[in-house]
Design a binder for these strands. Sequence first.
DNA 1: TTTACTGTACCGTCTGGACGGTGTTGTCAA
DNA 2: TTGACAACACCGTCCAGACGGTACAGTAAA
Lengths: 177, 177
Amino acid sequence: MRARKANSRDKILAAAADVAREAGPGSLSLEAVATRAGVSKGGLLYNFPTKAKLMQGLVERYLKDFQKALEARAAENGDESVLSAYIKLSADDCEQPKPSASWMFSAIAEDPDFLAPIKAFKRQLFERLKEETDALGSLLVCFLAIEGLRSMNLFDSDVLSPDEHKLLVAALLKIAG
Amino acid sequence: MRARKANSRDKILAAAADVAREAGPGSLSLEAVATRAGVSKGGLLYNFPTKAKLMQGLVERYLKDFQKALEARAAENGDESVLSAYIKLSADDCEQPKPSASWMFSAIAEDPDFLAPIKAFKRQLFERLKEETDALGSLLVCFLAIEGLRSMNLFDSDVLSPDEHKLLVAALLKIAG
DNA sequence: TTTACTGTACCGTCTGGACGGTGTTGTCAA
DNA sequence: TTGACAACACCGTCCAGACGGTACAGTAAA
């Protein structure tokens, strides 16, 4: 059934992210994912015919979720700018000490091109933010700082204390206006 | 001889970085590195007994070079702050479109712990910068923005135009005071 | 003689993927 | 209504190839 299939796909994608996070990005094997998802290797290959398709699925799901979350934030307070929504969303995302996206490293190791959709999305987001604001300098600083925050979270590099994290977000929101 | 050995080590490390950049971080095999370095596999294993030692060597060389470059920048203009030196150094580093450090992804794939020295160094640098300045908010924004710049360069994500790059650096230097 | 390799042969392990099955579900003619 | 059949979702096994690492014999310079 379609429902059954969709469930399996989601279970598998979640399992892949878990394996990458816990066993390390270099240990993301199909067998490990299958075991983790409670599916046989054959079943995994049925849903994702190749490892490349699995990676692609990971990227697509990530992008879809991110876009949805951003849209929800932006719509939540209609008066607030997209940049503010992006700042707050990223701040929340980066609160978890364990990076939820270490599967990205697996994808890069497999083939750096897998991240192309993410790069494209980011460019698009930047363009959208540029249209929104007239202070390009401030936007650049904010955008890059968020990028830095996400990067640190991804690398599991806990340089900032919680207080500093809050202070940074406040400063960015102030710059964003 | 020591000179001969040291040369071989450097050649091998450079070759490893090249292979990671050109063939992709997931294709960093000992054989590929040996071939690229113009060394036999036996010779490679003579200099780096395991792949882990090779990765470790890569990290150490990177850190040593970075520290030296930063110290040189800071000493160049004695009146200038370390933060300014860090900003300028990073801006220059990130001017090359091709990321010179994609070997980092290979190291992460092998074992995320390989990056521990880099994290420690970054924490240390942050502490040093905190001592230097009294405007913590500004420092946080600058530090994270640089982190974002480096991250984008590492991921080969060319979102910023050269003009925007310059504008950003100027804005950061202004914030840094 | 020691140092710093070269070159080759080889081993054990792991991995992606192909393949042939199996049960369950849906469809449709009789 | 029912029985045949097909599509779906998945299982379990097997295999060729790649990889890290070992072992060892040879060699050329210092």
